Amino acid sequence: MPRTGLTPIEIREKATDAAEERIRRHGFEKFRLVDIAKDLDVSHVALYKHFPDKQALLNAVSERWLNRIDETLLKIIEKKKPSKDLLFEWFLSFHQLKKDKVQTDPELFKAFDLAAESLKPFVVKHINEMYRQLQILLQKGLDEKSIKGDTAINLAKIFFEATVSFHHPKLVYQHLTEKREKLLKQILEVLWDGLI
């Protein structure tokens, strides 16, 4: 173990926790690695072993948030319900999770938005996971004969692209003051009905 008494995993977790809290309190622009090191009572050199720069720690904060979304949505697809109900619940939850982050954590959202713009590997991983989960849901619909159509892969692309304004960070932000759940349901109904 390092002299801090913390394992490398613990240092990473605690640094990510501290970064989230600092960004919330002081804003995205004022966030510094030196301050995080002080919060953890470690030298900045010890912290640099885990996060070579500020961006690396910001990425860890954003990646954690995306992982939480992935895990939350995965629980939905594991439920025992008809595929249509699961698909609607999945999309409405996906939309709400993004909207909640913009509303409740605007400074953390800025960090995520920068990562999303540059398509960091963890963002690509998240997008791929969303497609994977959608494919599972749509394959279930095909297997149940609730819908007809091409492959689950192609159907996932259609649903994802058709609903992009409900989960793309910038578009969620642009529509933040609107209640769009009804519109999302209507779009999903049209898409679903087109496959019956």
Rank of each mutant, 00 (worst) to 15 (best):
K145D: 06
L188C: 07
T4D: 02
I196P: 04
A60T: 01
K125M: 05
S165L: 08
L74Y: 12
D39K: 13
E117T: 04
K140V: 02
S43P: 00
Q103T: 10
G27K: 04
L171P: 08
S146G: 01
R24V: 05
V42T: 05
N154K: 14
R180T: 08
Y173A: 15
Q103W: 09
S93Q: 07
T104F: 14
L108A: 06
E10K: 08
R68Y: 01
W65D: 04
I158T: 11
V172A: 04
F159D: 07
V172H: 07
E89K: 09
V34A: 15
L57M: 03
L134I: 00
L6K: 10
E161K: 12
L6M: 15
I136F: 13
K110D: 09
N128S: 12
E21A: 14
V164G: 06
Q55L: 12
D193A: 14
S83T: 07
S118W: 11
V102I: 08
Q186F: 04
N67R: 11
K81S: 12
A19R: 01
Q55F: 10
L58E: 14
D150G: 01
K148V: 07
T4K: 08
V124T: 12
V42A: 07
D193V: 05
K148H: 12
E89A: 09
P106I: 02
K170C: 02
A15P: 02
K54F: 08
K140R: 15
L119S: 10
V124A: 14
K101V: 10
V123N: 00
M1I: 01
F109R: 01
H168Q: 10
G141Y: 06
I127L: 13
L73N: 09
D85R: 09
L138F: 05
T177S: 15
K179T: 03
K148S: 15
K140H: 11
I11P: 03
K79M: 11
T104M: 13
N154T: 06
R25A: 14
R3V: 05
L58N: 04
F94M: 02
P169A: 01
V124M: 13
L74I: 00
D39I: 05
A162I: 00
Q96T: 00
A115Q: 08
T163Y: 07
K148R: 12
E144I: 03
K30F: 09
Y131H: 15
L47N: 02
R32F: 12
Q139W: 10
V190N: 08
V164P: 00
A152C: 06
D105H: 14
A46W: 02
S62M: 07
K140D: 09
A46F: 07
K98H: 13
L87P: 04
D39L: 11
R32P: 01
A152S: 14
E78A: 15
K99S: 11
H168K: 11
H44D: 14
L47K: 07
Y173C: 11
L86F: 02
